[in-house]
Computed example of a mutant assay.
Amino acid sequence: MTQEPTTRTKPLEPPAAKKKKLDPWLKIALELGPLIVFFVVNGKFGIFYATGVLMAGVLLTLGVSWAITKHLPAMPIVTAVLVLVFGGLTIFLQNETFIKLKVTILYSMFGAALIGALYFGKLLLPIVFDMAIHIDDAGWRKLTWRWGLFFFFLAGLNEVMRRVLTTDAWVNFKVFGILPLTILFAIAQAPLIMKHEIPAEEEEAESHF
């Protein structure tokens, strides 16, 4: 009597766990904390001490983010690397030009990466936003163009300001100029986001196919 071969079925793999996300208020605190401390320390001790504190601050925020979510978004990583590189040059060479130039290079890189990726049919903005909003591809493309050009605008604006302002005035511009401009620009994108928003039920249905 021949024994029929038994077929083994591969055990079902558990669905991938959803990424943990930071509490919105904690996320804001982690993003603004190092910048605010940079501003305060610069006012009391000068740009070189402030730069050292900023470098420590970005490492601390990355550590807190990783401890909670077990992943790190691309944008904070790139920002931290540039802060460490240009901050290190600023302190080592005792030349504040490098920490000022970091802002120009950072925003230029973001603008070039976003718009350049579109040329190859890729959308990087959902990664930058860590999928915090849910819109269709047409919306992402429009939003990518807007943010890309805005980053180039900030890079150009910083280049002008770092050349004409004193160091203390530039720090004020970085905190009270660039930050409010970015917030206002983000708020101004609300109509576009709402127009292209994908309802939660529809997004869940698409994910099952």
Rank of each mutant, 00 (worst) to 15 (best):
I187R: 11
P34C: 05
K27S: 12
T6E: 14
P76W: 08
L12R: 12
V53F: 13
G121V: 02
P14I: 10
G88W: 07
T144A: 05
M131N: 15
T104L: 10
F48N: 03
R141M: 09
F86E: 03
V128L: 14
M1W: 10
Y119I: 15
L30K: 06
I135C: 08
G139N: 08
M131G: 11
T79A: 14
M194A: 12
A205Q: 12
S108N: 09
L60T: 10
F39N: 00
G52M: 09
F152G: 00
A29L: 13
G148M: 07
A132P: 00
G148L: 05
L149F: 15
K122V: 08
F120D: 03
K100P: 01
E201W: 06
P199K: 08
T90L: 06
S207K: 15
R8M: 10
L157G: 00
K70S: 12
F92M: 12
T51F: 01
G63Y: 08
E202Q: 15
G33C: 05
L93H: 12
K27D: 12
P5R: 11
F173Y: 15
T61R: 11
P76N: 08
R163D: 01
L72V: 02
F129W: 09
V41T: 04
K27P: 00
V78S: 08
F176M: 06
A188M: 09
I36W: 05
F39Q: 05
A80L: 04
N42K: 02
A117S: 15
T144P: 03
L62V: 01
Y49Q: 13
T182F: 09
K27L: 12
A205N: 07
P14L: 14
W66Q: 10
F151G: 01
G43N: 13
G52N: 06
L118T: 04
L165I: 01
G121Q: 08
I183K: 03
L154E: 05
A200C: 04
N42V: 03
F185I: 07
D137K: 15
L22S: 05
V85R: 05
P76G: 06
T9L: 14
T166M: 07
P180A: 05
W145L: 12
L125D: 02
W147T: 06
G52F: 02
A188P: 02
L89D: 02
I105S: 04
V103P: 00
F153C: 03
V103D: 12
A169D: 12
A29N: 03
S65G: 08
G43H: 11
E13Y: 05
M161G: 01
A80V: 04
A200L: 14
L179N: 07
G88S: 06
S207G: 01
E13D: 11
K100R: 14
L72F: 05
W66N: 03
A112H: 03
M109G: 15
L157K: 00
K122Y: 11
K142F: 06
F45Q: 13
L89M: 14
H208I: 13
F86D: 05
A17I: 10
I91Y: 08
F92W: 15
G63L: 04
F48I: 07
V103E: 10
I28C: 02
L106K: 04
A112Q: 01
I28K: 05
A80W: 04
I115N: 06
V128W: 13
K44G: 06
E159S: 09
V83D: 07
D136Q: 08
F209H: 13
T6L: 14
L32M: 15
L106Y: 14
Q94W: 11
K20S: 11
